[in-house]
Computed example of a mutant assay.
Amino acid sequence: MRAYKCSFSNGKVRYRNSMKDEDKADIFCPDGEHFFGKPEKVGDVMWLVHESNGLYLPAQHPQSKQWLFEEVMWTCGKDEVTYRNSPNMDDTVTDKVVPYACISAMPAASQPGWLQEASTKMYVPMNNPSTGEPLFTKGATATVVASAPIPMQMGNATGPGQAPKPAGVPPEATFVHEKYVGPTTLAAGCAGCLCCGLPGLIICLIQLDERDVWKTPDGKRWDLMGKRIEQ
């Protein structure tokens, strides 16, 4: 099961009683509506089976072949997020979404601020309850309905070392959180120079910036997208 959103900007998509275009039902799926569904393919035609009502939706416009729906994907941030059985912060389970993993989920209609995952129907908060910072970022593409499901990374994750390794990163690289000389450090160093002259550059040794990287034993680094970081 996956989470979908109707993205037909021209209006609404009519349900079918079966996977036949002419077998039209009396109800419609309006633009912007979220639902859980399952993709089914008959010949060259992709259909979505609505989980709640059991009816069918054509994934593409029969004439223009425009994609009418997009799978709603959310990417976890740098911190793991614990699943809940219900939209209640105290109703936790052992499973977690590991950092940078993708889940197919939709906003809980009756509980703003929560996501409900498609396959397990469990919940995760969208924001950190203490700081209010987002725990997930949203991303979706209309053509994803025809692709294989993105595996959800669950289980007893112990921290960011469990994050999926992007293509291009050597197998021996490990996931680390480190301090480095970046824009914040350089800005502080410049301010130190203005106040104290050249001795103010010692601030650059403090390394005020932080980042998550993939690092090999010989000190080479890659960012979270798999791009090599030049030292």
Rank of each mutant, 00 (worst) to 15 (best):
A173K: 15
M152R: 09
S9I: 07
W222V: 01
W222K: 00
V49F: 03
M19K: 03
A3W: 01
A140S: 13
S9C: 06
P171Y: 08
W74K: 07
P99S: 08
F69H: 09
Q162T: 12
V98Y: 11
K12W: 02
T75I: 15
Q66A: 12
Q153C: 10
E80P: 08
G197V: 06
T158I: 14
G200H: 04
A142M: 10
N156R: 13
T94W: 10
A163T: 14
S130E: 14
L57M: 11
G226K: 00
S18L: 00
P129N: 08
K20W: 03
D212K: 05
G161N: 13
P134I: 08
A59E: 12
D218M: 05
K179I: 12
E70W: 02
I203S: 06
I27A: 06
P134K: 02
L198M: 06
N88P: 07
L135V: 06
E70M: 09
T92W: 03
N127Y: 06
G189S: 07
S104H: 00
M46T: 11
A109K: 15
N85L: 09
L115A: 14
P107E: 15
T216H: 01
E210S: 12
L224K: 04
L186R: 07
I229D: 01
R84T: 08
T143Q: 15
A187D: 10
M46P: 01
P199Y: 01
A188I: 07
D218N: 06
D21M: 05
W67Q: 13
P125K: 05
I206T: 13
G32E: 05
P112C: 12
Y123C: 04
D209P: 07
F175G: 14
K96T: 06
V124K: 00
T185Y: 02
H50N: 12
A101R: 06
S52E: 13
P112Q: 10
Q207L: 09
R84A: 08
S130R: 07
V181A: 12
E71A: 10
P39Y: 03
N156F: 09
P217F: 02
G77K: 08
K227H: 03
T75L: 09
A118P: 05
V169L: 05
S119F: 00
P99I: 11
T94I: 14
T137G: 10
Q60M: 14
Q63L: 12
L48H: 00
T82N: 06
C76L: 08
G182N: 06
K165I: 09
W74C: 02
V145T: 10
T184Y: 03
V13R: 01
N10L: 05
P217V: 10
G197R: 00
R228I: 00
G168T: 12
P62G: 13
S110M: 13
A118F: 00
W114V: 15
